[in-house]
Design a binder for these strands. Structure first.
Length: 480
RNA sequence: GGUCCCAUCGUCUAGCGGCCUAGGACAUCACCCUCUCAAGGUGGAGGCACGGGUUCAAAUCCCGUUGGGACUGCCA
């Protein structure tokens, strides 16, 4: 039987990195089977919380990740099937109407050892009205075994599972029911999702069987796989409210999709051998649900960033330059990080110059959003960082002499190349008893506005004699 | 409270009874390289939560303790 898996996110907020990992694992499973199918099904059955912009965010995130799927489908599209399932289940006596308000249920809970709904309306024989929700009648004793490819067989005690609601008093199906009906209709073979859903599995299995019985169908149950949670430093489940979980944010910061995917794959799983930087083909080849870790994983941005740096350095200069465009080219680009515009204008940007800058910066950034500050002095006047200026120039008694000497030596250079600049600077430093390290500091600050940056002499050569000398002069004046 | 899950360096993990004086990666420290910053190279520090079993032999199996976590909605 071909693998049929699905991602079933609800459009109630940013696309979560945890959702991305779940998507990846599902996608891998489908890829491993020549006939495998990966479905994207947006679970939009809660009109109170869903927003159209969030469903668009799901599509955008999946597109960025490059995980191809069948769909997208929306759970709301299958509403007729949900209604039919409800009807069949009622007819079969698997469901009953309940008019208890949440407050009443809460009140009766009291100090009972097993809270939750107490089955008050089970045998009241209520008819449907505008105040009745539909509950599923669950067995009071016994156990149910959830087959889980990650954890083995998980045994649940039925006494702790209360009669849960499957339809609102408005008649609309709730997640509990809709999810099962959709999985059945989509012929899902493996339900692969986060561990927070583990407790839902026995309910879904019972519903699935009841549905088969009520409809005379014999659709086989899916097998489950509950992935370890992604947690924050406090070891709490990553939350949309307090943790940086929006996938979009990582894209905005200049993380490469390949790096993100590679890192995500390592959360709960690991490739054979000592290399953690691996191609997706290798991951698809080696991945097994049985090998997935059982314990929660901390989403470590530092490690992700290190991976990203590795991926950036592995890029061809051309590919790197192309990926940098949203951050450096003020002209028309297809996409730009939220809230970001280059600090320089279209007329100041020179793509050819940027191409020549690439070798100087590619190995110096771990994220694409670090690029602008490395190259800004090429496309505009250096930012006036007074703290840097004070440190490298004002507070250094030798600085004015160095700048003046550089002005003279650089002006006299026949060839304004990096090597010549290097030699000239070395010489003017030696003349003052300064190491190159000391001598380059005020020059770097005068020309780039910063204490750190790409290699100085290559930068000066690319900047050109005229602009270099102008900035040296300006710094000298500013210092005086 | 109840149900369920989990437990190897700070972090992510390898380990599936002897190959383990526990391997790798990120982070960290030192040194080398060096015009700043990186990158790169070399080396170091750092872990099997605890207590009982089982076994000739346990990080690996069993039980318990402790500690984390998820779920417990007319949300998904």
């Amino acid at each position: 039987m071909p693998v049929r898996v699905r991602l079933a996110p609800s459009p109630t907020g940013y696309f979560h990195v945890g959702t991305a990992r779940t998507a990846l694992f599902n996608w891998i499973l489908a890829k491993q089977d020549p006939e495998g199918v990966f479905i994207l099904r947006v679970e939009d059955t809660d009109p109170e919380r869903n927003r159209e912009e969030w469903v668009q965010a799901i599509y955008a995130a999946m597109a960025w990740l490059g995980l191809d799927y069948t769909g997208p489908f929306r759970q709301s599209e299958n509403a007729p099937a949900h209604a039919a399932a409800l009807e069949a289940l009622v007819a079969a006596g698997a469901l009953y109407y309940c008019d208890c308000t949440p407050a009443e249920v809460e009140a009766r809970k009291g100090a009972r050892a097993t809270p939750g709904y107490d089955g008050y309306c089970r045998d009241r024989g209520l008819a449907r009205n505008e105040r009745t929700a539909l509950r599923f009648r669950t067995p009071d004793e016994g156990t149910i075994v959830v087959p889980d490819l990650v954890r083995g067989e998980v045994v649940f005690s039925l006494s702790a599972i209360d009669d849960f609601v499957v339809a609102r008093s408005t008649g609309e199906a709730l997640y509990a029911l809709a999810n099962v009906v959709d999985d059945r209709d989509d012929a899902i073979t493996h339900v692969v999702r986060g561990e927070e859903h583990l407790a839902n599995a026995p309910k879904q299995m019972m519903l699935w069987s009841a549905l088969n019985a009520a409809t005379g169908l014999e659709v086989s149950l899916p097998v489950f796989a509950h992935l370890p949670l992604l947690v924050n430093e406090q070891r709490k489940k990553l939350s949309k409210r307090r943790d940086p979980v929006a996938l979009e944010m990582y894209r905005d910061q200049g993380y490469l999709v390949a790096a993100v995917l590679n890192y995500l794959a390592l959360l709960g799983w690991s490739p054979r051998g000592d290399d953690e930087i691996v191609e997706m083909d290798t991951i698809v080849e080696q991945f097994r649900l049985e090998d997935v870790s059982h314990s929660p994983a901390f989403f470590d941005v530092k490690k992700l960033t290190a991976f990203n740096g590795t991926y950036i350095r592995a890029l061809s200069p051309e590919a790197f330059a192309a990926l940098c465009r949203p951050w450096v080219d003020p002209g028309e680009v297809a996409w730009r990080p939220a809230g970001y515009r280059p600090a320089w204008g279209v007329e100041d940007f020179d793509p050819d110059l940027f191409a020549r800058l690439v070798p100087l910066i590619q190995e110096r950034v771990a994220r694409l959003d670090e690029v602008p500050v490395m190259v800004d002095f090429f496309f505009g006047e250096p930012a006036h960082d007074e703290a840097a200026f004070a440190k490298a120039i004002t507070s250094d008694p030798a600085a004015p002499g160095v700048l003046a000497a550089a002005l003279e030596a650089y002006g006299a250079l026949g060839d304004f190349g990096a090597e010549a600049l290097h030699a000239a600077t070395l010489a003017l430093g030696e003349a003052r008893g300064l190491s190159l390290r000391k001598a380059q500091a005020p020059i770097r600050c005068a020309v780039t506005g910063r204490l750190v940056g790409p290699p100085l002499f290559e930068s000066l050569a690319l900047l050109g004699r005229e602009r270099t000398l102008a900035r040296l002069r300006a710094a000298l004046e500013h210092a005086a």
